[in-house]
Design a protein around this nucleic acid. Structure first.
Length: 157
DNA sequence: GCCAACGTTGGC
DNA sequence: GCCAACGTTGGC
């Protein structure tokens, strides 16, 4: 059992969208490292931190779970899709994705709070220059984050 | 196989 | 809208 952090722009798919749909195909990943994580390292039942990115309040917004094996991303063959990849051969699809199912919405664990937490300093997400949309989370980081999610939000000062 | 140019990501 | 960081592309 592994743990992952997956970024999603809430304008495209927020934690509320996932809650409503129950399950979504994680289409549109066009980065080889992120694809390889899904293809080689993901397993059904893995824990997912659902992260809101490119929005007014970036941070962890909920928990989800991997609920399928990796399979070809249909959007790569759709000329009308923004994720269309004309260089991908249908006989040998370049891009894959998994499906992810809703577990629960949490309070927003905002990026500054993550950065302020010493035990999370090693998180891949927080490393300088990180842009990967899918990053591994260690069991220790997962536990620490669950603890923070259950605690009250820090009071503003 | 090098590497400069270009595109994308994503926080601020 | 800026910009730093990084990945990808393509000429050589």
């Amino acid at each position: 059992m592994s743990y992952w952090l997956m970024k999603s722009e809430p304008e495209e798919c927020s934690i509320d969208d996932l809650a409503r749909l129950g399950r979504v195909p994680w289409t549109g990943v066009r980065n080889y490292q992120a694809r390889n994580f899904m293809r080689d390292d993901f397993a059904v039942g893995d824990g997912v931190l659902f992260y809101h990115s490119s929005c007014p309040q970036p941070g962890i917004a909920g928990l989800a779970e991997v609920c399928s094996a990796a399979y070809p991303d249909a959007t790569q063959f759709d000329p009308a899709s923004p994720y269309h990849d004309p260089k991908s051969d249908p006989a040998k699809p370049r891009w894959l994705h998994v499906d992810v199912s809703f577990v629960r919405k949490t309070r927003l664990l905002a990026l500054p709070e993550l950065r302020q937490t010493p035990t999370l300093a090693g998180m891949r997400l927080l490393q300088p220059g990180n842009r990967l949309s899918i990053t591994p989370v260690t069991p220790a980081e997962w536990q620490e984050i669950l603890k923070l999610l259950d605690a009250a939000s820090p009071s503003p000062r």
